[in-house]
Amino acid sequence: MDKPQPSTSERIVEAASGLFHAEGIRAVSMDAVAARAGVTKRTLYYHFRSKDDLIAAYLERRDLPNLAAFQRWFEAAPGDVADKVGAIFLKLAERARKPEWKGCGFLRTSVELINLPGHPALVRGREHKKRVENWFAGMLEEAGDTVQARLLAQQIMVLLDGCFSVVLLHRDPGYMAAAGHAAMMLVRAHMREAEE
């Protein structure tokens, strides 16, 4: 059975995603996106009223797949909840070793748009980060930490986003492993408190 062809808007978002990931959102023109997608600029603007809308669609496209990857890594990892949280960081370190790795698209976009807090892409970025945080909190509650799960999820997010930034700066995935170790220690400490 033949695979269905992507719609024009899907082709445009796919083209934009590749360019935005490789070069950053400000460096990429709508002309470049249209050329990569194989459409006219008029067609591009028919599907996306502005570059801002296209940037938001780029992040929306990354949202659920990124969270799904975290969920897969968590579920596949052996051990207790602390080991499973640490495994997410180790998987990220594996990815960061690849030459094409460019960090977190949500954070990179937020840096480029920092002076526009209401930008639709920043709204998408905040929604994504909150969705990941809520998922961590849910996993921690299921594991028995019903009192501090929200605080612990926030601490994990600080470690997660912090290591994205530091690894991008130093190009050393060892920082992700270090952040993962810190996350494991935090989870274990909280779980011990919850049992007492």
Rank of each mutant, 00 (worst) to 15 (best):
D83S: 10
F48G: 03
I88Q: 11
R26L: 10
P99C: 05
D63H: 15
R72L: 07
K102W: 07
R61T: 00
Y46I: 02
S29T: 15
A82H: 07
G18A: 09
K102I: 05
N66P: 00
F70R: 14
R42C: 04
T109H: 03
T43Y: 02
R42G: 13
R49D: 12
R61E: 06
G18I: 13
A87R: 04
R26V: 06
A68I: 00
A96Q: 12
L54H: 00
L44F: 01
L90H: 10
Q71Y: 02
A82S: 12
R95D: 12
A34N: 03
F89P: 06
P99A: 14
I88W: 00
L92K: 09
A34K: 04
V85L: 07
F106L: 14
A27Q: 09
K41E: 06
I88M: 14
P99M: 14
W101G: 00
W101N: 00
K51V: 09
F70L: 14
R97S: 05
F48E: 03
R61S: 05
H47R: 01
H47D: 02
G18R: 15
T40R: 01
F106V: 13
P78V: 04
Y46C: 02
W101Q: 03
E100Q: 13
D83E: 14
V13H: 01
G38F: 12
E60W: 02
E60I: 02
F48P: 03
G38R: 08
L113R: 07
K102F: 09
L67C: 04
A32V: 10
F89G: 07
W73A: 14
W73E: 15
E112V: 09
T40D: 10
D31Q: 12
Q71M: 13
E14D: 15
F89Y: 14
A27N: 10
G79A: 11
K91V: 07
A57Y: 00
A68Q: 07
Y58D: 14
I25T: 12
H21S: 11
G38T: 04
R61H: 05
A22Q: 12
I25F: 14
V111F: 15
V111T: 10
G103E: 09
S17G: 15
S110N: 09
A37T: 00
A93H: 05
A15V: 08
K91F: 02
P99E: 15
G105C: 04
G24L: 04
Y46N: 09
E23K: 12
R62L: 15
P78Q: 08
A82D: 11
E94T: 01
A82M: 06
G105P: 01
K98A: 14
A27E: 12
Y45A: 00
V81W: 11
V13C: 03
F70C: 12
G79Q: 08
C104T: 06
D63A: 13
T43S: 08
D31A: 11
K51A: 05
I25L: 15
E60S: 07
E14Q: 12
R108E: 12
C104W: 00
K51Q: 09
L67V: 09
L19C: 05
R72K: 14
A77Y: 06
L19P: 03
R61M: 03
G79P: 04
N66T: 11
R36E: 13
R97D: 03
T43H: 02
D80G: 11
D53V: 00
F106A: 03
K98F: 10
K102V: 13
A35H: 11
A68D: 10
W101D: 01
A22G: 13
